[in-house]
Simulated scan of single mutants.
Amino acid sequence: MLLIVSSEVDVGSNAAPQFVTRIGGRIRELRKQRGWTVQQLAEASTVSRRMLTQIELGQANPSLATVDRVARALDTDFAALALPDGDAAGVETEGTLVWQAPGGSAALLLGATLDPRAELWRWTLAPGERYDAEPDRPGAQEIHHVLAGRLTLALETGPRTLGPGQSAVIASDQQYAYLNDESEPVVFMRVVTGA
C-alpha cells in the first residue's frame, strides 16, 4: 500500500511538537499493549529509561535513530509511529515534520509503504548546516535526489556531492551525514529502504 502525500512546510527553530507528542503517545500505547514496563522497553531498545520516559511524556526531542530503535523493539517501524492517523488508509496529507534546526533546515516524512518497507522524505538543509545520521540496519539503503542546491553526503568512503537533478544510492548501514557547504539551501528527496 502506497501513501500519497505532498508538502510545503515552513519550520521554526525547535523540534516539531506534534511529532514529539504523537510518537510519545504511540510508544506508551504499544509498550502498555505488550505489558512492558519502561525498563523492559529500555532493555529491548537500548534507549535509557529516562529518555523513554521523557519521550512518552513529549518532553524529549529524540534522534531519528532513537525513534527507529524503539520502533524495532516494539515490532513496528518509524513511519507507523510518526505518520498521523489516516495515512495508513492512503489519505493525502502534508506529511509529518520530524526534524528541524534553528537555521531553517527540516526533514518531512511524506509517506511510507509497509511491504516492502520504504519511506519517502523531503529534506531542506540551510547553508552551512549538517545532519549526522546513525547507521541503519545491515543492508539498508537510501536514494537521494537533489531538487535545488548542492548536497554533500559524508560517507565512510569519502564525500560525495550532488547537484540539481542528480541522484545517488548509498548504503545507510554506516556512519554518514548530510551537509550543505554552499550559500543557498539544498532541497532533496530521500527514499529509505530496509531500515
Rank of each mutant, 00 (worst) to 15 (best):
M1N: 08
I4N: 08
I4H: 10
I4Y: 00
V5S: 15
E8H: 09
V11R: 04
N14S: 11
A16W: 03
Q18T: 03
F19L: 07
F19C: 09
V20S: 03
I23Q: 03
G24K: 09
G25F: 01
G25R: 12
E29W: 10
E29F: 11
Q33I: 07
W36G: 13
W36P: 07
Q39F: 11
A42W: 02
E43A: 10
R49H: 13
I55L: 10
I55R: 02
E56C: 13
L57W: 12
S63H: 01
T66Y: 05
T66W: 05
T66V: 13
T66P: 01
R69L: 13
V70A: 01
V70N: 01
R72S: 14
T76S: 06
A79N: 06
D85L: 11
G90H: 06
T93A: 05
E94H: 06
G95P: 04
W99G: 03
Q100V: 00
G104F: 01
S105K: 00
L110W: 05
G111V: 03
A112P: 00
A112S: 14
A112C: 09
T113H: 06
D115F: 04
A118P: 00
E119Q: 15
L120S: 11
R122V: 01
R122E: 14
W123E: 00
W123F: 10
G128Q: 05
R130E: 13
E134M: 12
E134S: 15
E134F: 04
E134L: 11
P135D: 00
R137E: 15
R137P: 02
G139P: 01
H144G: 08
H145C: 11
V146A: 13
R150P: 01
L151A: 04
L151D: 04
L151W: 07
T152D: 09
T152N: 10
L153V: 09
G163V: 08
P164H: 08
P164N: 01
D173Q: 05
D173E: 05
Q174T: 13
Q174S: 09
Q175M: 12
A177Y: 11
E182F: 10
E182D: 15
E182S: 05
P185I: 12
P185V: 00
V186H: 05
V186R: 03
V186C: 12
M189Y: 14
V192M: 07
